[in-house]
Nucleic acid binder design. Structure first.
Lengths: 373, 373
DNA sequence: GCTATCGTGGAAAGCGCTTTCCCCAGCCTA
DNA sequence: TAGGCTGGGGAAAGCGCTTTCCACGATAGC
């Protein structure tokens, strides 16, 4: 192979030497198929690969002005771009970082990713984004993949699963990764290896419920995401706590589980109101579901907030665009991403696992009000 | 280095060793920092690296059952994951593909990316997503970066720029990439190297304008994105064409340029209505701007569609959640992504540059109606 | 004037993996 | 029984790059 390649290269003839990029001349010129290598550059500049490499990477070692110029010229002419795999192999340090999210096209993750991206870029890192589409198996695969890519850090964004087998397995993989020098940080889940950024999911649930009780509501219903997600259970726990503090209860029938999506929100709303017509306020455990609820209510001519109040969670951009605008719990998503990435990159020792908490606040808008008299 | 590494490796001891420490020097053993390598696996399975590699990659070459089992066992015990860089270097074929978008968190690109992702995954490719944040310089950088990563294909999603210098430069880079065997495909721009998926931007503009004229509007205003984007100019061209066909005109003052964002839409609407109060219908050149327009109008108690009609472009999910629901032009974004990736991966020869066109259709909803009497 | 000392370039040893190419049995024909 | 296969394993040559380590003039020190 090597030979063949050289041969080909011989054919394209025109070894270096002369002026402008041999590139364009069809039929003959070309750099031949396969990439231009450092050796090509060195040859054309009439220096050793070592020197070429030093010039290109701005090595500490001094190189005479003239050689430097020749190398740079050759790089230009040949449109040389170093092979990242070869660099990755030869260098010790890793350059890329990876993140596994449920789905970047979901605004929730889009915001988080934005924060991750920003910090990664500031550190000169390439961010590799992987969508697990909420499939644990795929999540596992991606951990392997990122490990194979020798990323410097893995950020797990998105909720954890209540699934002991899965947790055990992913932890094993993550630990192996850490052992080989990688850094792990997670957003919003516990029971996990690595540093963590913890959104105040429970507290947020408590606050929003308290807010509704404060408005005078007595019968609150919840449309929740999948039970297996820790995000769901944490937020729900907060709501229950508030109920308890108010000396009220939240019967199981007033909690309807569905998908964390617009459609999930709509169907859950239908079920909730069918089973518990006494409800005067609906807490959706994320904004997508809240939007679905709003849509369903509008479709059934139920006035928000006059007949029923609706509140969401996350404060995604859409929250201020729907009608009525959505009361919700704000989580600083972008900042959460940024913090997670910062931790991942300030890779201290493994041991003192750090946990950073971020606050949740209630953002009152038009979709909530006192219960009907 | 190598030495240091081995030494360190000794330290962590505890190899999950079942049998005796292979032919290794005693006291060796641990996995330790730095990854487990194929050599480690081979040693533990007491086979050559060649055999180990063959087992792991399911090579065509047959390997005796017993050895195979030993290797697999070792992989398991050591939690071995091959180094993708080394593989990338040793193998000839490239595995990853890259896409450069303006911003994945923008729903427009999120939808496109979803399509890209799907097809890439179907082909067993890793998709590397790069956000240019609409910065041409960054776009250029990312082309280099992807080239360095030896990706099999680069997809440029997102509008082109009316910028000759930039176009020339990026074309030079893309051509160099193609010459080294890469495949390029672009979504929605012309003047460009590579295969292309062309959304019917102009036709879409024509259709939506025609629709408004059909409702009886005579004074249409446009809130447009940045002038340098081909998407903007194409859509605008369609609207102008429709105007012309109706024997009407679209004076420059009724076209206000701004950002392709919600806020851009709001401010553009303010300007437009201030300068041209006769306008009875506003065409926003994307849905984000339309949502901004809706918000501004609501804020100023202008009723949609009774006083002013508003239409968007793209049919993003939010279009059906705002109030009133948004009349818009639907582009099959996900499919566009899928098609672009298919072309990129069915890398035929370079020459017959393929162009696929996708249709646009008007989706009437509540935000448009006849002009006030 | 002869050895220490720089200052610079190149040779070459890997990084971890894939993949020829070659070798060694064992088995089958004549 | 010799000769040729063939199945199965290992040695080793790279892939393209970085980074010691060494060599070699030129300067400086005594």
């Amino acid at each position: 192979m090597g030979t063949t390649r050289r041969a080909t290269r011989g054919i394209d003839g025109s070894e270096p030497e002369a002026g402008p990029p041999s590139g364009d001349a069809p039929g003959r010129g070309g750099i031949a198929r396969g990439a231009v290598t450092l050796a090509d550059v060195a040859r054309r500049a009439k220096v050793s690969p070592a020197t070429a490499s030093r010039v290109i990477n701005g090595s500490a070692k001094p190189v005479a002005e003239e050689l430097r110029a020749r190398v740079l010229r050759a790089v230009e002419d040949l449109r040389y771009v170093p092979n990242a795999h070869a660099q990755g192999l030869a260098r010790s340090h890793r350059i890329a970082v990876g993140v596994i999210v449920h789905d970047v096209s979901d605004p929730y993750f889009a915001e988080i990713t934005r924060g991750l991206q920003r910090v990664a870029t500031e550190h000169g890192r390439l961010l590799v984004i992987c969508n697990s589409y909420r499939d644990p198996a795929r999540e596992l695969e991606y951990v392997e993949l990122l490990r194979a890519q020798q990323v410097a850090a893995i950020v797990l964004a998105g909720s954890g699963y209540h699934d002991a087998a899965f947790t055990k397995e992913i932890n094993a993989k993550l630990r192996a990764y850490q052992q080989s020098g990688g850094h792990v940080s997670v957003i919003g889940r516990h029971e996990h290896v690595g540093d963590a950024v913890l959104p105040a999911n429970e507290e947020g649930g408590r606050l929003i419920a308290e807010y509704l009780y404060g408005l005078g509501h007595r019968h609150i219903g919840v449309i929740a995401g999948p039970k297996v997600l820790t995000t769901t259970t944490d937020r729900l726990a907060g709501i229950r706590r508030a109920a308890k503090e108010q000396g009220r209860s939240l019967p199981a029938r007033r909690v309807v589980h569905s998908d964390f999506s617009r459609d999930g929100g709509a169907t859950a709303t239908a079920h909730l109101l069918h089973d518990s017509p006494e409800v005067t306020a609906i807490v959706a455990l994320n904004d997508s579901m809240a939007v679905g609820a709003l849509a369903w209510l509008r479709g059934h001519n139920i006035s928000v907030p006059h007949q029923v109040s609706v509140v969401g969670f996350d404060d995604m951009p859409v929250a201020s665009d729907v009608t009525p605008t959505l009361t919700t719990v704000r989580l600083p998503l972008t900042e959460m991403g940024a913090r997670a990435m910062s931790m991942a990159l300030s890779g201290s020792a493994i041991h003192p696992t750090r946990v950073e908490r971020v606050e949740a606040i209630v953002v009152p808008r038009e979709s909530s009000g006192p219960p009907p008299a």
